[in-house]
Nucleic acid binder design. Structure first.
Length: 881
RNA sequence: GCCCGGGUGGCGGAAUGGCAGACGCGGAGGUCUCAAAAACCUUUGGGGCGACCCGUGUGGGUUCGACUCCCACCCCGGGCACCA
């Protein structure tokens, strides 16, 4: 008997990592003959050292990848870096250095940490987004998108971050602040580049239904963000200024009439203003009409109507409201009358046009028909400015309903309600539609839309909240947009053969130099006419880089195309994607969009990039607080590896709880899992008879009898646990899988202790049961503690090959079952006693045994019935006799 | 306001409608030791000497039986939000 080596991760881990690297252990071919599985974790931003979020995310991915390999798959498990972006640029400016230097240094640091963690990546497929060999294909895709009409350059109000000195996409504004630096964003009118993601809005929404493997909340968030509304657009004819109004009903209108008389009548170019509404059923209740302060051509529209000054003042005031304030929700509404009128197409009524700051300019048409009786916002506005609130929809128990039920013409012109009726109701004072049900998608709505369609003044319309994706950034460290501005030819794409447009390396960012001021970069010739021209100096949003990197991994060295369609279709879609919930909208939505466009280009043959999505919960400190430098509660993965080794860190992370839940990091877990791996290490040694002198057998406690029973129990436990762990791995419950492995180790430990001395000889010289238990423990732990398992497999268990190339342990469900089972016996659902019966006992026998066991409790009661649940319990239902 | 999650011991967390609290942390007691660490053993939801009683956010319901399903409410977390 040789002496047992102590578990020493600090010696084992570096040695095995080198061995794996030397053997290219995790390289996967594109043309393997095993079934394929693509396991992918969201690639990191190289922001510095790795943190606990990385440890969590990539440990899950690694365990799933290793498990999948053992289950017989060729597993694609790559890693790369999302390397463009502002943090690198800011760090470079601060240190008077270059973003590339900072980025590549951090990549080296992170890669070393990942290797120390024992992650099984195919490093041959490493993708770095700021590498020209990668970003040239991002430019190529941009050109292809452009050819397909999915690139647009337009002027509109955009979100500008004054700190980051760049524009932001809608998705990158959080409560009116920049998602990175949380400075307040400003609205600016700028000409920018867009990807027309809205062309895919409907499909992006519909296909969420295909994503059975995605968390419900992520799909919900995307659906919310896309924000589909079914309704109708309705055209309101604009009353020309010179026609004016005949009757005057309010002071506001009186002012309007006076104004018209004083001013020359301009020639109106706008004949109709279109609105979008989901409540066409309430059209008869439209008593005023609203335009957003940012409504295009607003000032021309009000010119000459006598209220220009008020309108201008309101527009100015609205523009000063900060995005943060705007995001704060319910605010006091402000508006002014414009002096103009439009005609309600359903009843020919002229209604006054107001400008109101609660109308959102970039949703629908920026114009709204106001129905104060049916919309709370319009109601509040009408109250504030003393505008009429004609009732056209009522609940049947409304006192007014008795009076207006069936009344088609307007009798009541305004009501004095507390709030609008936004629910369903019956239409009144609504002409021929009176008496119909009103509400979203109601009978009344359908009838009125049909009438508008017949009259040509309205039609069905679907609106989306989703805006086009603003992709241009006024920053250096990004992928240059491959476009050229020519005085003669306009905006021209860079010819494909000229790609990549290389990001110049010589730039002095600290001195304020930008691509726009970098003349050597900006000056070029027009590819169409050859005249001197200027290059586009904006770069692309980094999210364009992360929208297709998972495609590149399938064919990372391709110099002819972003990837070979064959390779991509063979591996993709990603079978298991793993990442943080913070990307629920941004990255996941953009990637879905890219996939659909690439499909339409014929590059891919599937609709959705990620079949299954695991959103891991955040790692918080022991008190549930987010870890941050400012709070000083950040723990360093490197320090933990130094102290305990990677396998302990991995196991401790997994043991915290189920992956999708938030995890409270507790240092005690490291000690616990360190103890466990050491204990399991000793048990494996003991099982195969390599126990040292120091191994403690409790000879006194060892029973003289029952050795056979103990062995049977050990065997049962081995099969039960293998079955349980397999099921837990399949549903990614690694915490309970670990708990089950602990039970197996505990059982083996007990088995060794209780085993009579003469049996010990049998087992300790490699008895088949002990060896099977030892190998099962090692194989079950192999995905979680890869170094620990490899050392035991190749060292203690003396196998040639790697444990990570072994098939996953099998189990026999029959052997996992006990011969005898304990059942609870309940009376009326309360446990009274327990009985032990044969596992395959007949139901009637169980019932008889149970009834006999509780006989004393049944005195004076009638047994109504008894329910037998095999292997669980017997419930005797009684009633007093 | 609308839409998703989630409330279980001192703590992290387990439980296809079937004995609530697996596994681990922490606590208590013990073995070994001159002592300590390590390791190992016993014990540990609350109450009661005890037979027993009470316990999964609250209140109802369905069921032989509910942490689990249904209804209402409270609290916590997240998303959207003046989106017509």
């Amino acid at each position: 008997m040789c002496s047992m080596a102590e578990y020493n991760p600090h010696e084992i881990e570096p040695r095995l990592q080198q061995a794996w690297q030397a053997a290219d252990a995790y390289k996967v071919p594109n043309d393997g003959d095993r079934p394929r599985k693509y396991v992918l974790e969201m690639f990191p931003y190289p922001s510095g050292d790795i943190h606990m979020g990385h440890v969590s995310n990539y440990t899950y991915g690694d365990v799933i990848a290793r498990y999948s390999t053992m289950r017989g798959f060729d597993v694609l498990h790559p890693m790369g870096w999302d390397a463009f972006g502002l943090p690198a640029e800011n760090a470079a400016i601060k240190r008077n250095s270059h973003p590339a230097k900072w980025t590549y240094e951090n990549i080296a640091t992170q890669q070393a940490s990942f290797q120390r963690m024992g992650f099984s990546y195919d490093w041959d497929r490493k993708v770095v987004a700021c590498d020209p060999e990668y970003y040239r294909w991002g430019q190529w895709l941009f050109l292809k998108f452009w050819e397909r009409g999915l690139v647009e350059r337009k002027n509109s109000p955009v979100n500008w971050c004054p700190d980051c000195k760049t524009v932001l996409a809608n998705e990158q504004v959080e409560e009116g602040t920049c998602w990175r630096c949380h400075s307040e964003v400003e609205k600016r009118d700028l000409t920018q580049w867009y990807f027309k993601i809205t062309d895919y809005a409907q499909e992006l929404l519909d296909d969420l239904d295909q994503l059975d493997g995605w968390p419900e909340r992520v799909k919900q968030q995307q659906a919310n963000w896309i924000g589909r509304s079914e309704g109708a657009e309705v055209e309101f004819e604009v009353v020309p200024l010179n026609r004016g109004r005949v009757s005057v009903q309010s002071d506001n209108e009186l002012q309007a009439v006076e104004a018209i008389e004083q001013k020359p009548v301009p020639c109106s170019t706008t004949e109709y203003i279109t609105v979008f509404t989901t409540r066409a059923d309430t059209l008869f209740g439209c008593s005023f009409f609203l335009l957003a302060p940012e409504y295009p051509g607003l000032m021309e529209f009000v010119e000459g109507a006598g209220h220009e000054d008020e309108v201008r003042a309101l527009v100015e005031a609205a523009s000063k409201v900060s995005a943060v304030e705007r995001a704060q929700g319910e605010r006091e509404k402000h508006g002014v009358f414009t002096g103009r009128y439009v005609i309600n197409p359903i009843n020919g009524e002229q209604v006054p046009v107001w400008v109101a700051d609660y109308v959102v300019a970039d949703y629908g048409t920026g114009a709204v028909m106001a129905v104060p009786c049916g919309d709370q916002r319009d109601f509040e506005f009408a109250r504030k400015y003393d505008l009429p609130i004609p009732p056209i929809i009522l609940e049947d128990d409304d006192p007014l309903f008795a009076q207006l039920n069936g009344v088609k013409e307007r009798q009541v012109t305004s009501v004095d309600w507390e709030a609008a009726l936004e629910a369903e109701g019956t239409l009144v004072q609504s002409g021929e539609y009176t008496g119909m049900r009103g509400g979203k998608g109601s009978e009344g709505e359908a009838a009125i839309v049909a009438a508008l369609e017949a009259a040509g003044t309205g039609r069905r319309k679907v609106e989306f909240r989703l805006r086009d994706w603003l992709i241009s950034r006024q920053r250096y460290w990004g992928n240059p947009i491959p476009a050229i501005h020519c005085e003669h030819c306009g905006v021209v794409p860079v010819p494909e053969e000229d790609l990549p447009v290389l990001l110049p390396e010589d730039i002095d960012l600290a001195a304020g130099e930008t691509l726009a001021t970098h003349e050597a970069f900006a000056q070029c010739t027009c590819p169409k006419c050859g005249a001197p021209a200027r290059r586009e100096t904006d770069t692309m949003d980094t999210f364009t880089c992360s929208s297709w990197y998972y495609m590149r991994y399938t064919d990372p060295h391709n110099s002819e195309a972003p990837f070979a369609t064959e390779a991509a279709n063979a591996w993709l879609p990603v079978d298991q994607y793993i990442g943080g919930i913070e990307h629920a909208i941004l990255h996941l939505l953009y990637s879905r969009f890219f996939t659909k466009v690439c499909r339409d280009m014929g590059l891919l043959n599937f609709d959705e990039p990620f079949t299954n999505l695991l959103c891991q919960g955040m790692v918080l400190d022991a008190h549930g607080e987010v870890m941050s430098k400012s709070k000083g509660n950040v723990v360093s993965p490197e320090d933990m590896i130094d102290q305990y080794g990677a396998d302990v860190v991995r196991a401790a992370m997994l043991f915290l709880g189920p992956p999708e839940k938030e995890k409270l990091w507790n240092e005690d877990g490291l000690g616990a899992l360190d103890r466990f791996l050491r204990r399991a290490w000793r048990v494996v040694h003991d099982l195969v008879g390599k126990a040292g002198e120091d191994t403690l057998y409790d000879e006194a406690a060892a029973g003289k009898e029952g050795a056979h029973a103990n062995a049977m129990e050990m065997k049962r436990e081995r099969h039960r646990v293998a079955q349980k762990v397999t099921a837990d791995f399949d549903r990614y419950n690694f915490n309970t899988a670990l708990a089950a492995i602990m039970e197996l180790v505990n059982a083996a430990s007990t088995f060794l202790r209780l085993k009579p001395a003469d049996h010990r000889v049998n087992c300790s010289t490699g008895g088949p049961l002990c060896r099977d238990v030892a190998e099962t423990i090692v194989l079950l732990l192999a995905p979680i503690a890869p170094h620990w398992a490899e050392e035991l497999w190749q060292g203690t268990l003396e196998h040639e090959d790697s444990v990570h190339k072994q098939p996953w342990p099998t189990f026999d469900p029959e052997l996992a079952k006990a011969d005898e089972v304990e059942l609870a016996v309940q009376i009326n659902g309360k446990v009274r006693t327990k009985i032990v019966v044969a596992a395959d006992a007949a139901e009637d026998d169980i019932r008889a045994t149970a009834l006999a066991a509780v006989e004393a409790d049944l005195a004076g009661k009638d047994v109504v019935k008894s329910i037998v649940i095999p292997s669980r319990l017997v419930n005797v239902v009684v009633r007093p006799s």
